[in-house]
Design a protein around this nucleic acid. Sequence first.
DNA 1: TAACTGACTCGGC
DNA 2: AGCCGAGCCAGTT
Length: 127
Amino acid sequence: MAKAKPQSKKQRLKDPLNKHSFFEDVWDVARQIPKGRVTSYGAIANYLGTKMSARMVGWAMGASHFAPAKVPAHRVVNRVGLLTGKMHFGAPDAMQKLLEKEKIKVENNKVKEFEKLFWDPAKELML
DNA sequence: TAACTGACTCGGC
DNA sequence: AGCCGAGCCAGTT
């Protein structure tokens, strides 16, 4: 699977073939999130070159259910560390439980020390 | 076919 | 410092 390399947004989205890999790219990046770390939709979007469309990342996460491999969507939160998508995990606190299982402290639907645990693909994966 | 919505983000007030 | 509006892409109604 491609390593989610950033490319021109128009180039990717314009081509139906490449478009299909948009999901895989997002999933791929999500899978690369180290255990015990979290990232934001915007960070992934930015890494993919579609930083203006963080919504699509979230939407792609929603589709992660169809992903060929498991995607740690629980490690992806919004820019303030809020567990915005926890309701989509089936159970109201499934996401929080998964996070706590990785020693990530969650309080009031928000990741504690989010800035410290924040993992930016564009920075960590560089390039 | 057009309009609305959404697991977001940024900038202005 | 907090609230409000606009922009983004795709899928749904």
